[in-house]
């Protein structure tokens, strides 16, 4: 498989509150996307997932690191070539309220994208709009409604349709389906699977729904406070989660069965949530980690490879993996 998008040692910071303070929202992140694969990105709210996505598509300016598309460092491109590359990597916004123009109708919003990619004939564009709406599960009757007249989930689907209009090779989807009910969610998820299988579109899929990510993604990255703490095949990360944070996350997934859910013991997260402007020394997770020892405060955690594809940033990864094997 060929890497279509590589992110190397990316760092993106924001000014924090207080003089000279900064928030390293993305802190030395390296990830890879191959064409025709869906890769999950999960992690605590505020850990930097959207910032990573926005940095990849150029909506935030990274401080250092590289974004490589099709083997070419985007930092070395300019003008038309940069625009073409940017068009091939589309971002589906987390917030469908912010990403659509209230004064446009649904048809106009999609038409705009089609004009940008140079679909010249009006008839052709019109047919394509109908097709795109159908793909995202919207009846063509919405075409003439203003986007402000739609519900949250309907807007989200218009936003997806619009990003598909430019026929991207990479999609950065920021919680694309969390506003949708389960039955439409399934349709949209299957659409992503089809885009992957039929057109080889690569997708970085940011989501909080861990069950959904497990089913859709072949690989997953788990992020905590700006860093990737675990990464690997979905079977590996879900089958043998080996970073304490991943374990905590997976143990918190609610069950849809009321009898089970009401009796379930929800893991209590101990410790203070660390400040992103002033992260803990050593391992960022240690302030909340049940396994932390003195050393965790002193040195950064080593990266341990449990398999060639399953990597964890925790000194205890081997022990945890061993234990989750014997527990299972």
């Amino acid at each position: 498989m060929k890497a279509v998008l590589e992110v190397e040692h990316l760092v993106t910071s924001f000014p924090g509150v207080g003089r000279g303070k900064t928030v390293r929202a993305v802190n030395d992140v390296s990830i890879v996307l191959h064409s025709g694969e869906i890769v999950g990105l999960v992690g605590e709210s505020g850990c930097g997932k959207s910032t990573l996505g926005r940095s990849i598509v150029g909506l935030e300016k990274p401080e250092s690191g590289r974004v490589i598309f099709d083997g070419v460092d985007l930092g070395s491109l300019s003008g038309n070539r940069l625009r073409a590359a940017r068009r091939a990597v589309q971002y589906v916004f987390q917030d469908p309220y912010a990403s659509l123009n209230d004064r446009q109708t649904v048809g106009e919003a999609i038409d705009e994208a089609l004009i940008i990619v140079g679909v010249a004939s009006k008839a052709e564009r019109s047919a394509r709009i109908g097709q795109l709406l159908d793909q995202v599960g919207l009846a063509s009757a919405v075409r003439d409604r203003f986007t402000r007249e739609l519900s949250g989930g309907q807007r989200q689907r218009v936003a997806i349709a619009r990003s598909l209009a430019v026929e991207p090779r990479v999609l950065i989807c920021d919680e694309p389906v969390s506003a949708l009910d389960l039955s439409i969610r399934a349709q949209v998820m299957n659409l992503f699977l089809d885009l992957r299988d039929q057109l080889g579109v690569a997708c970085l899929f940011i989501a909080h729904d861990l069950a959904l990510v497990r089913q859709a993604a072949t690989r997953v990255y788990v992020m905590y406070l700006g860093k990737i703490v675990e990464g690997g095949g979905s079977d590996e990360v879900y089958g043998r989660p080996s970073h304490p944070y991943t374990q905590m996350l997976l143990a918190s997934v609610p069950e849809a069965d009321p009898m089970i859910e009401r009796r379930r013991k929800i893991p209590l997260i101990k410790g203070e949530i660390p400040s992103p402007t002033n992260p803990p020394s050593g391992c960022f997770f240690r302030t909340r980690c049940p396994l932390a020892v003195g050393e965790c405060a002193r040195i950064e955690p080593p990266t341990i490879f449990l398999t060639p594809t399953h990597r964890i940033a925790c000194r205890f990864a081997n022990e945890i993996a061993q234990k989750s094997l014997t527990d299972a």
């Binding site: 389960l182 399934a186 089913q215 859709a216």
Partner: peptide
């Protein structure tokens, strides 16, 4: 349509047509 633990990784999602 709720994803289940025994749904295969990479399998299609169940929903309403």
């Amino acid at each position: 349509a709720i994803p289940r633990r025994d749904d295969a990784i990479g399998s299609r999602f169940r929903g309403l047509s």
